[in-house]
């Protein structure tokens, strides 16, 4: 396992990056994405899986914003806003499906839902 940068390295980094270095933003995004993936893979409750997907979308947003800051380019912000709108649409349809599932099948466990038709 590689060690974290030593203090001297951080001061070196501060000379060309005012504030937190880009890698730490990316590392936080990677950790958030991994936690979201952990939720999708290990949880079988449809609602928790949806929330984990929201986490992963946010991790992607963080990456866009971090790069937008490094390059001083606002396109990343625009992309993040579009991702947010897509996430809202996804949540609305996804939750409607979960509610329909609960009504028709009486379960929100995705393992128990194997067929599209009743």
């Amino acid at each position: 396992m590689p060690s974290l940068p030593s203090p001297s390295l951080l001061t070196l980094a501060a000379t060309f990056a005012p504030g937190v270095i880009l890698e730490h933003y990316l590392l936080l995004a990677a950790i958030l994405f991994a936690i979201g993936m952990l939720g999708v893979v290990t949880r079988r409750n449809a609602l928790t899986m949806f929330m984990s997907i929201e986490l992963m979308l946010n991790a992607a947003n963080l990456t866009f914003l971090a790069f937008a800051r490094v390059h001083a380019d606002l396109s990343g912000h625009v992309t993040a806003i579009l991702v947010m709108a897509v996430a809202a649409a996804e949540a609305a349809v996804g939750l409607a499906i979960v509610i329909a599932l609960q009504r028709v099948r009486g379960t929100t466990n995705v393992d128990e839902v194997r067929t599209l038709k009743l």
């Binding site: 396992m1 940068p5 890698e23 990316l26 990677a30 993936m37 952990l38």
Partner: peptide
């Protein structure tokens, strides 16, 4: 087993990100 493999995979993703961080030196 599926959950275990998936969990290990997710943790491995963080390890991969950490190794990128280490490449700096």
């Amino acid at each position: 087993l599926f959950k275990l493999v998936g969990g290990l995979f997710s943790v491995g993703l963080v390890g991969l990100a950490l190794s990128f961080l280490g490449l700096r030196q």
